[in-house]
Design a protein around this nucleic acid. Structure first.
Lengths: 203, 203
DNA sequence: TAAATAATTTACCAAACGGTATAGAAATAT
DNA sequence: ATATTTCTATACCGTTTGGTAAATTATTTA
């Protein structure tokens, strides 16, 4: 039991749980976007003073990056799971279905943080904007890889354009994110998923 | 020829063309979004002083609304044209194809202003955000009406859910807008359109 | 108990934000 | 010519932005 007794660090201990604070920051950024979230709103939501935030997380940019990391490791972790389904068809179906649920979950902000975090922005946020573009492209590449695996397994025909199909799938996902932000229900998004999956290429 | 000789108004005439200035403002808002566009950047782009902008267009909100009106009357006017194609299938195909071109046109900013104008925003822009939601929903309703017309004309079966199908179509459009902002080419968007149209419901 | 370390608190900073008061300049009407 | 009207230019307003300096408080080590 003495292994649970961690040696406490030298000076005054933190008055707040860093992980809880980061989660609260995540929700603010998720709702407002990078620029729309002000440091004042963040300090209010986190319940701690501004210098403590800067001491713990750096500056606004780094706080956003760390919140985004928590987002990808948490609410978006289902994507990696979906890719491990036995067939590509099942992977994509699970990806879009879980997306429909996640994008409209009543316990989280609506929409995808990677889409609405900085789709357009002012002069000071172009770096964050570009980073979100890269993250979206990474997910697209992940889906493309899953489709290419399906081609080697003869689930999909060799003449299927996995790049175009992956782009189509993430396009539907990103469109659903906009719809979720506009107030669409989970059922409405699931109906979209059903329509989007009707044209699965024949093997 | 004397009808072209308009009676000039009373005081000092405007030093700039209001319509040209509005078009420049449109491009700034289109690129930066409502919040991302600062009045300083707008005055620079319009080439006129700040009080002249306020005298001519009101405040930032009204300037955005007027620019948005110009956007809908200009770059987005093809939507109304598309709806008048002889068949719904042709209407939707034209809508998405023209969208793919417009969203990636080299002579305009990328993406759809109604999507990226204020997808997420700070506390001062929620009204604009909501107005954009309403505008997107109006376009969705327009497409739904076109599909319902097709049902009365037996182009589409009675059991087709025109609401869900319309939602699917605008979802693809909105996803393509995100893709365009991320750098997708016109050809890539056209490939998405092709995939999206493969599942057109059988009559 | 004293020194050292690290957090919190208060107060503040320069810069940028949207918006405007005031004065001058350019046109028409009398 | 003079008065009137309207736009333009300079300079400025209060507020909010992201970010910090300095002092205080709480904890561990010696």
């Amino acid at each position: 039991m003495e292994t649970t007794e961690l040696k406490r660090p030298r000076g005054r201990p933190s008055n707040f749980d860093h992980d809880e604070a980061l989660e609260k920051a995540l929700y603010v950024f998720w709702t407002r976007g990078y620029e729309g979230a002000s440091m004042s709103e963040l300090t209010d939501a986190l319940g701690i003073n501004r210098p403590s935030i800067y001491a713990a997380f750096g500056n606004k940019e780094e706080l956003f990056r760390k919140a985004l990391g928590k987002y990808m490791a948490g609410p978006v972790a289902y994507v990696a799971d979906a890719m491990q389904q036995p067939t590509a068809r099942q992977s994509i179906e699970m990806f879009l279905t879980k997306s429909a649920e996640a994008l409209t979950s009543p316990s989280t902000p609506r929409g995808c943080m990677m889409v609405q975090g900085a789709l357009s922005c002012g002069q000071g946020a172009e770096l964050i904007q570009q980073e979100l573009v890269t993250h979206r492209q990474n997910y697209e590449a992940t889906i493309k890889k899953r489709l290419e695996l399906a081609k080697t397994q003869s689930e999909l025909a060799q003449n299927v354009d996995s790049g175009a199909l992956a782009k189509y799938i993430v396009t539907v996902h990103q469109g659903m994110s906009v719809q979720a932000t506009s107030g669409a229900s989970k059922e409405e998004l699931l109906a979209i998923v059903e329509l989007a999956l009707q044209n699965w290429p024949k093997s």
